[in-house]
Amino acid sequence: MLSLWVIASHFADKGRLFPTPWEVAAALSDMLVTGELVRDVVASARRALVGFVVGGTLGILMGYATGRNRLLDDSFGSLFQMLRPLPPISLVPLLILWLGINEPAKYVLVSFGVFFPVWINTHQGTRAVDPRYIWMAQSLGASRQKLAFEVILPAALPMIVSGLRTSIGVAFFCLVAAELAGAMDGVVFRMNLSQLAFRVDRLIAGLLVLGSISLISDTLFVRFINVAFPWLNGPGNAHDAKSA
């Protein structure tokens, strides 16, 4: 892969539009030394994390509510299904008008993108819980709260985890839209500046950093799930976080 990159950069426009790997590494090193890389990574990671936590939490709560309550499903289900296919980027003009280009607008955009995969998976997961689990719990005297937290949500967890994992990628997708719409720091903001300055080496360095953050986030998430919920990887369980 690296060899192909070297060859391609040699023949393509004398490296101007296609810098060599070491030119990209030098740009990365430069960004690291000046401290702007750390600042941008922290800003982008914070936006992705806040959006993921807020959107994920709301997705799980609403998914449980619409999955287990027909009235709430009738009230909100159609609305969510209508909003779900909308690309988050289509919300940018409205969010700028409502919230400006400050941090809350970015959090809302990422949360919006994260919400729907988590909501639909939690909705389907809680709806598909084997009724025998619920009957057993009821016959053992489980309260509504115990039924929700100790039976239905754990039984739906494989689906919820799938939704959360999908939404990690969506969070970074939305982050790109959020930072392109207006920001003063962040990895994508820096890539945008690099494009205007025709610094393709810094642009590619930004792409590599963004991809790396996304990969690290996914790896940390899978490790957390494996430690927190070891039973998810047990034989007979459909979900296998290690191989997913």
């Binding site: 084997d130 057993m136 039973w231």
Partner: peptide
């Protein structure tokens, strides 16, 4: 029950 004997997460 036969095949849903236990809560797998406990």
């Amino acid at each position: 029950f036969q095949d849903v004997a236990l809560f797998l997460w406990k």
